[in-house]
C-alpha cells in the first residue's frame, strides 16, 4: 500500500520508494525506510496530503504520495 491508501489518522511505516527521481529528495528531507507516517488530513478532491513523518510535518501531492510504499 502507499500513502493514498491511508485513512485519516492511520499510521504506517515507510518500506521503500518506487520512483528514483524523488527518492533522493525524500531521503535528504529525512524521509527514509523505517519512518512512521501518519495521514493527518487531505485537501478537497484528495489532491494534497498533510502528513506527520516522525517528528515533523510535510505536505505532498497525490502523485508523490503514490510513490511512498508503506507497511
Amino acid at each position: 500500500m502507499n500513502i493514498r491508501d491511508l485513512k485519516i489518522g492511520e499510521q504506517k511505516t515507510v518500506v521503500c520508494f518506487n520512483c528514483e527521481n524523488i527518492c533522493g529528495k525524500l531521503l535528504c528531507m529525512g524521509v527514509k525506510p523505517g519512518c512512521k507516517i501518519t495521514l493527518l488530513r487531505k485537501t478537497n478532491f484528495d489532491k494534497t496530503f498533510y502528513l506527520r513523518i516522525d517528528g515533523s510535518r510535510m505536505a505532498v501531492r497525490a502523485d508523490e504520495a503514490a510513490k511512498i510504499e508503506l507497511m
Binding site: I22, L26, Y50, S56, R57, M58, A59, V60, R61, D63
Partner: peptide, 11 residues
C-alpha cells in the same frame, strides 16, 4: 526542474 511538492510544514 521536475515539479513536485515535498513541503515542510514548520511548527
Amino acid at each position: 526542474e521536475t515539479s513536485f511538492l515535498l513541503l515542510e510544514l514548520p511548527v
